[in-house]
Design a protein around this nucleic acid. Structure first.
Ligand SMILES: [Mn+2]
Ligand SMILES: [Mn+2]
Ligand SMILES: [Zn+2]
Ligand SMILES: [Zn+2]
Lengths: 148, 148
DNA sequence: GCAATAATTGAGAATCAATCTCAATTATTT
DNA sequence: AAATAATTGAGATTGATTCTCAATTATTGC
């Protein structure tokens, strides 16, 4: 998981370095976000919070993103899905149930860097999403299709 | 590039197989799209066409996408960018000038498949985007930063 | 080819997430 | 604590995309 105290320090350091104020609204949203398990949508944050306005939630999520503490991916239906930034990883997304599986492969990462180097491209970050069918959904399917 | 005649056949076959009509509007949009070089936006299609309505353009781009003839990626600014589907490839996207560089690496592809196999995930497709700085923009930067 | 039937189209309305406005409030600085 | 600067909230606005439905066009079966 993520060390909340460290995340708060990161965030307040970022705010100070940018000349931005440290407000209860910003700290509340960060706190809420840190308590989310896995992936979440903006509407989740709006729903779970009755104190901070919609406008400030949008503004603050962008600020937290700029601080490097959250990021988002897009589902197969093009929905924005946020997550707290941990170690770098990529995603497998099930096209049947929508489940998101995180993975990390050092060989993949270094191969990507090699490919960039060979083309003179200087990479800063990447996203990779593999769409397909997760193990659980494969089981369901094979059961349904099994003749009696 | 892409064989236009073959693309039209693919599209009309798809339409027939789905019980959809073959209309001048649909063929016009496909023709326009096939003549686009590289990547294009919906607004480009709307601008370049004065015959077909906006609503039909949206509907038809989705239909052409469903037929597997175009797909889209998202830029760093989250804009939808379409392209005609050719051989599979991935993208490097310059964060300075927005340039999109296509690449394909067989080792990368097979490594991805291995990773999926090891986790019991059955992949159907993937997208990978590497953000960074393209060779041209690196030159500009080093020139600007060079002391006189 | 022609009538009957089914699908598509276009113009504008509607939707909806995201952004903007600006006066009131709150944080920061001195 | 006062002065200054930044932020917030409520609601308006935007803008891309989708929807509506009557008019038009394509398809199907003679
Ligand atoms: Mn993740
Ligand atoms: Mn491409
Ligand atoms: Zn699944
Ligand atoms: Zn560039």
């Amino acid at each position: 998981m993520v060390d909340h105290q460290y995340a708060f320090k990161q965030f307040t350091d970022y705010l100070r370095s940018e000349g931005k104020s440290i407000t209860p609204e910003r700290l509340d949203i960060l706190d809420l976000v840190l308590h989310e398990k896995g992936h979440f949508r903006i509407e989740d944050v709006i729903r779970k919070n009755d104190r901070v306005s919609r406008a400030t939630i949008y503004r603050t999520l962008k600020t937290i993103e700029d601080a490097g503490l959250i990021k988002y991916i897009r589902t197969i239906h093009d929905e924005k899905i946020f997550e707290v930034v941990k170690e770098h990883h990529d995603h497998m997304i099930c096209e049947v149930c929508g489940k998101i599986i995180e993975f990390h492969d050092p060989d993949l990462e270094s191969l990507q860097n090699d490919i960039c180097a060979s083309r003179g491209f200087s990479p800063t970050r990447h996203t990779m999403k593999i769409f397909g069918i997760c193990p659980a959904c494969q089981k369901h399917r094979s059961q349904k299709n099994t003749p009696e």
